[in-house]
């Protein structure tokens, strides 16, 4: 115990050798978790004539170039696909925020017959595994004439049952008195919802928005099933197509994956705490 001590942010003492060991392990894990992304970025920046298969591997491109991003756009309309993904993801944010807030408010704050049945419907829906119903969803979409459209991609997840229940819990945690006071002052349901309840649950709403965006942007199985015409592909489906058809040039696939992942990494970097909060709330519910 003769080591000099250092102190962490919580005021707990930690021995220097222990601190050093921690950082070594953290750096090893950093390599494992981030290394593959960096390698993909590096591959996407390597020119056509650079050997990407060398052993030992070369981590830095000798002549970094953005050519691959142009070339991948010649093979598949990658920017159109990105725009399709953006459209679906943005719409998914709007529908989930609006739909989940409205339904959550109805479940939490309103008194009416059938409320328990409505709550149960959302709980059951949350428990149904998406992977088990995709074929039935596909036939439903065909019946509606919406297969192979972006609307068809959007609809099944457009108001997630879990988001409704998240919003319900958020509203339940608000003190009822403020709304009762507003009621006495003559505010109607809509006004109480919009002006009083909604501003108090902004945090949960942000979580719903972020996970709705991420869910739609990253989704693979459902768009794979519902989209058949390359015109309407989203980015993930386009990448899968690129991989299947042009796998012989990893630079192109790498460029495509970089395009798909950068927006989300930026979003995550800006809004980290909502991402982490969402994990906690989702896990408790899920």
């Amino acid at each position: 115990m003769s080591f000099p001590k250092t102190i962490d942010a919580d005021g707990r003492r930690i021995a220097p050798w222990q601190l050093a060991l921690r950082y070594v392990l953290l750096l090893v894990m950093l390599l494992v978790m981030i290394g593959p992304f960096v390698w993909q970025l590096s591959t996407s920046l390597k020119g056509m004539h650079e050997d990407i298969y060398s052993s030992p591997p070369k981590f830095l491109p000798s002549e970094p170039t953005l050519d691959n991003f142009g070339r991948v756009a010649e093979i598949i309309p990658v920017w159109d696909y990105a725009f399709n993904s953006l459209k679906v993801a943005s719409a998914n944010v709007i529908t989930n925020c609006a739909g989940a807030a409205l339904a959550g408010y109805a479940l939490a704050r309103m008194r009416y017959r059938g409320r328990r049945a409505a709550t149960l419907a959302f709980i059951l829906a949350m428990l149904v595994p998406v992977e088990g119903i995709i074929i039935a969803q596909f036939t439903t979409m065909r019946d509606l004439g919406l297969n192979n459209t972006l609307l068809g991609v959007l609809l099944p997840g457009s108001i997630g049952a879990m988001n409704v229940l998240l919003m319900r819990n958020a509203f339940l945690n608000l003190p009822q008195e403020v709304e009762e006071a507003a009621f006495v002052d003559g505010a109607n349901t809509w006004q109480r919802f919009l002006r009083i309840a909604l501003p108090s649950v902004k945090g949960t709403l942000a979580v719903v928005a972020i996970f709705a965006f991420m869910g739609a942007w990253d989704d693979f199985l459902w768009p794979l099933i519902v989209l058949s015409d390359p015109e309407n592909f989203t980015l993930t489906i386009g990448l899968n197509y690129l991989h299947g058809t042009f796998a012989q040039d990893p630079r192109l696939v790498a460029a495509g994956t970089v395009i798909a992942v950068v927006p989300l990494i930026v979003l995550f970097a800006c809004l980290q705490r909502y991402f982490f909060r969402g994990v906690g709330e989702g896990a408790v519910k899920g």
């Binding site: 309103m110 009416y112 409505a118 419907a121 829906a125 119903i133 439903t140 108001i159 919802f193």
Partner: peptide, 23 residues
């Protein structure tokens, strides 16, 4: 309340619960 819950129930009913039963 039903107006508030309608969009959510509609989506969840049409694209989760109905497909489950139809499966």
């Amino acid at each position: 309340p039903w107006l508030f819950a309608a969009p959510g129930l509609l989506i969840v009913g049409a694209f989760s619960l109905y497909p489950f039963l139809s499966t």
